[in-house]
Design a protein around this nucleic acid. Structure first.
Length: 242
DNA sequence: GTAGTGATTGCCT
DNA sequence: GGCAATCACTACG
């Protein structure tokens, strides 16, 4: 993609695409909750086998803190073959299979067994490819799919970005050529982050109710908007944000 | 728009 | 054997 290409987003495109820096090991060397907030607005890039580059802005994340967190797969320090990437170097991709047919994509953070679930993206580049991947996956696509629905859920974005265990699990996002996260100037335009309880977890109420989900306010690509049980944080007021 | 439910299989106990 | 950090379809208002 050349510097003058326009980004395809119908929502927050703001002119020519700039050169963007890949997030490095220092970025990921961050406590889980801070990293989950810092990832909002950054750009996930996936290189397919045919060299197509898919891009999407991260608009929704969740923290899974590890040892102490009853909703985390690594609760009480439990290590299994499946959750091993949660204990690997910060910035490692953790992809797991769930509900018999879906994948979820996480990035390990600083802290034993801690990781950030990527829950939704705002599709930016090569939306046709994403739509085609989603279409293949569905049995009968009766309902018309909108662009905002391409990646508005953890399993949907894995389908749209061809993220599965075989191709992506345990990959180092600071060095792998198949997928990485980029800095983006537009992420500085975010003014408010919304915090809410995490989606779809069942555990002790105290952990179920913790505000460990984060999303960009007013972004149409977020998976689910809370009407209650939410806090708004001003981006500028959040300490340690990278 | 939203509440209810079936799909589908690898992992963990 | 139970169930999962989900999705999409159906029915109903």
């Amino acid at each position: 993609m050349s510097e003058n290409d326009q980004c395809e987003s119908e929502y927050f495109s703001s002119g020519p695409v700039q050169y963007r820096k890949r997030l490095d090991a220092q970025f990921y060397e961050t406590p889980c909750e801070e990293m989950a907030m810092s990832l909002l607005g950054k750009i996930l890039v996936r290189r397919l086998d045919d060299n197509t580059l898919l891009r999407g802005r991260i608009v929704e994340t969740e923290s899974y803190l590890g040892n102490e967190d009853a909703a985390s797969q690594s609760f009480k320090g439990k290590i299994t073959p499946r959750n091993e990437p949660m204990f690997m170097k910060p910035g490692t991709a953790y992809v797991y299979f769930t509900y018999g047919m879906y994948h979820c994509f996480n990035i390990s953070s600083k802290g034993d067994g801690a990781a950030v679930l990527i829950r939704a993206l705002e599709p930016l580049d090569n939306l046709n490819t994403m739509a085609s991947l989603r279409k293949q996956f569905r049995k009968c696509s009766k309902t018309q799919m909108q662009n905002k629905d391409l990646c508005n859920g953890p399993a949907k974005l894995c389908i749209s970005f061809a993220i599965d265990i075989k191709s992506c699990n345990k990959q180092d996002l600071t060095s792998w050529d198949g997928m990485w996260v980029e800095e983006d100037e537009n992420s500085k335009l975010i003014d408010t982050i919304v915090c809410s309880p995490r989606i779809g977890i069942k555990c002790e109420k105290i952990w179920q109710d913790k505000y460990l989900r984060y999303y960009i306010r007013d972004n149409p690509c977020v998976s689910k908007i809370e009407k209650t049980k939410m806090n708004e944080l001003k981006y500028s007021q959040i300490e340690n944000i990278k």
